[in-house]
Design a protein around this nucleic acid. Sequence first.
RNA 1: GCCUCAUUAGCUCAGUUGGUUAGAGCGGCGGACUGUUAAUCCGUAGGUCCAAGGUUCAAGUCCUUGAUGAGGCGCCA
Length: 482
Amino acid sequence: MKRTKIAEILRTEPVNTEVCVKGWVKAFRNNQFMALNDGSCAQNLQVVVDFEHADPALIDRIKFGAAVGARGQLVESQGKGQKVELKAAELEIYGDCNPEEFPLQPKKQSLEFLRDIAHLRFRTNTFGALFRIRHALAFAIHKFFNDRGFCYLHTPIITASDAEGAGEMFRVTTLPLENIPRTETGEVDFGGDFFGRPTNLTVSGQLEAELGAMALGEVYTFGPTFRAENSNTTRHLAEFWMIEPEVAFADLNDNMDLAEAMLQEVIGYVLTHCAADLSILEERLIEEEKSKPQDQRSPMALTEKLRFVVDNRFERVTYTEAIEILKNSNPNKKGKFQFPIEGWGADLQSEHERYLVEKHFNKPVILTNYPAAIKAFYMRRDEAKDGVPGPTVSAMDILFPGIGEIVGGSQREERLDVLRQKMQDMHIPEEELYWYLDTRRFGSCPHAGFGLGFERLVLFVTGMGNIRDVIAFPRYPGSAEF
RNA sequence: GCCUCAUUAGCUCAGUUGGUUAGAGCGGCGGACUGUUAAUCCGUAGGUCCAAGGUUCAAGUCCUUGAUGAGGCGCCA
């Protein structure tokens, strides 16, 4: 008999029909009540076993974690806690699960322990909910761009340019590491390497996305991204997924509008489509925060926090205005900042960003028009402005409470002469990026785009604390298990 | 990479000023019960106290080094 997914059964409640379900045992109470979960939704289906007439050897194999199939009548439940249940006429054990060896237990287990058994943590309620939400977010992002006529562009994962300036890269090579070929001058001879030149894993698809936008108009990438930085934080991964839209004939304001609309729409999608999964994570968070002192608990529950982000405009502030706010802030005056605000020009530290987002504005903040000196070469130089001490670029960073920077983007420098000058100033070799400069030579136009760290978005939406817990198999310094 | 903290049963943790035989809850196992909701009740087993050195009559406890983990910072998405 064809199996029906539990999500389908709980939605349609086909009482008094015969159904077949297959899943994993979440609990077996009273020798009689099996809670079965097949991953299609957060809820379990209660399967009632006729223990008086069933084979005791079979009953004995119904253990936490076992894979089981059940066929029988779906009936209204006699007990409280569920509307319908399955009266099992036939049971089949697909895979036994020895409780003496199975690392998971039907109880709360720490996220750190579960990270060590990441191949099994999908089986927990928390990670089941989390990965369904992660999927919904990914889908909502594609839907958002598709609805607006964007073209999904697959940019290369292996790249030969190391001039992108987005951090340390992973080298890709087929050269024998135990016997590296050298040139006469002793340098590594990449002539015999697979691509005949040094190559790396991509740190960004942006430059290639710009090429696509210069013809397709509106494109976005959504792919794996790699950074070989020795970053040990709850917000960094060596392998993560990034969304990078790029829009022709768009300026910084269009860019901000797009990013804000996208974040609000995809979070809204999860609120309407993943209510049960969200409430599992919300409960988990509330439980976890019970052990924290009152003043360290979040002021809003998870769904309330998400609703707030969806319903309120993000605060848009220039870097120059932010410096003024920070300079006059209480923590700065009282010397509470580890890095005091000296004046215009320095990059903001995370304590400053946190103050702006979590204390001063208490909502997502878009910081714009940063000093040119602390931003990438491809960002568009602004016109000089009264009250702004130095040159700035049309950059924007979106800061979220608890996460920090979730989006980084800019209007791009479309003027060939200005771009070449900046590359020269920042020692970026023109010959390596001739193809990038060609877009400015032939039919250049104003355009803008941004990068969204997908795991940071998942982190925010699920309320998890560590980015290593929102990707199935995290890669970070010293860790590439599974 | 830097700073702080942690590592004791399968899991989560307690362990006093260095002092006899190392404790709990949950989980496991055995049994009872049988409309339960992380079922309940009774019983029971389970330990290289992260590793290696050191101090001491005596180390889970103090010191040194290392490993692993967590949190913070930097880099950034």
